[in-house]
Simulated scan of single mutants.
Amino acid sequence: MQIVFLVIIGAAAGFIATRMMKVEANIIVTIAIGILGALIGGLILRLLLAVMGAAAGFIGAIIGAMVLIWLYRTYIARR
């Protein structure tokens, strides 16, 4: 079932990509472009999420600390 889903998504992605890049290709090449593009894009996305996941956690920690400081200054330090 996953292979069928990959072919359908690959065909759609290949069709859109070939139209956006103005490439004339037959249906087999379009599907192959879409499937390979999905694999490459998936690997790149996973890499970016792995790298950005740590950075996002760090940024989230900074924002959380800033909110805590704001709450402290607003509600506790004024007393």
Rank of each mutant, 00 (worst) to 15 (best):
M1W: 13
Q2F: 15
Q2M: 13
I3P: 04
V4W: 12
F5A: 14
L6K: 13
I8F: 12
I9N: 07
I9E: 09
G10N: 00
A12R: 04
F15P: 00
F15H: 06
A17T: 15
T18G: 01
R19F: 06
R19T: 06
M20S: 11
M21V: 15
V23H: 01
E24Y: 05
E24G: 05
I28C: 02
V29H: 08
T30I: 10
A32N: 03
I35T: 05
G37E: 01
G37H: 02
A38M: 12
A38W: 07
L39Y: 11
L39F: 11
L39S: 04
I40E: 11
G41R: 05
L43P: 00
I44E: 01
R46H: 11
L48D: 05
A50H: 12
A50V: 10
V51D: 07
A55K: 13
A55Y: 10
A55R: 11
A55D: 06
A55E: 08
F58R: 14
F58W: 15
G60Y: 05
G60V: 06
A61N: 15
I62M: 03
I62E: 00
I63Q: 08
I63E: 06
I63M: 07
G64I: 01
V67W: 06
W70P: 01
L71E: 09
Y72I: 13
T74A: 11
T74H: 08
T74Q: 07
A77C: 02
R79V: 05
